[in-house]
Amino acid sequence: MSDALIALREALLATPLSSTALTLAAYLAALWAVERLGRPSWCPAVLLAALLVAAILWGLSIDFADYRRGADWLMLLLGPATVALGVPLYQQLHHIRALWKPLALSLPPAAALASCYSLALAWALGASPEVLASLAPKSVTAPIALGIVEELGGSVPLLMGGLLITGVMATLAVRLLGPALGIRDHRILGFALGVNGHAVGTVRAFEMSPSAGAFASLGMSLTGILTALCLPLAWRLLGL
């Protein structure tokens, strides 16, 4: 009897469909729960869904590597999904044409500092090179950041955790600092949300106004592109 059960378990773990079903179920459950809680900005659905999956893996004592092997099939879609980000970027081009000067002046330092502040702090507190590589793309939207971290040789799970915390912190920071600095221009608030808080911040910006959302997605794409093009080069030059 127990032999049959072990064989069944083996068979189920061998197919990527188990991981797929688990991922979909956890994500849908998390969406439902987050909706129930009134969409708190400190708890994105992804975080809750990841907690659920982790708890189930732990409860059934399934190896994370086994789950990950199946889920890789799902993550394969990240490739075309990243390419698809070119569509909203194309649709935002009129903003870039109209405001290229302020954008060209503020985007590169903003995107570079988003990475540098954290790197400097982590380095000063004695973080290892692997940790530094995982934190460097922390303000970049996840599909692009994944590609960067592979180039730099960081840890994907650590990057993912960092991305979530960064997104939530950026949302909080804009909400606190915006009024304190007397900034009411939704274009600026949205841009700051997108540059620093990637997708999490962009979702929050779309809740503020369509204009904030448009500038957030613009800031998010431009930060992603700029970081993806410059960070691996800078890393090579620094010899890290």
Binding site: Y27, V46, Y67, L78
Partner: peptide, 10 residues
């Protein structure tokens, strides 16, 4: 996208 990156977050 959020769901696609979720396995990485786990």
């Amino acid at each position: 996208l959020a769901m696609l990156i979720m396995p990485g977050v786990v």
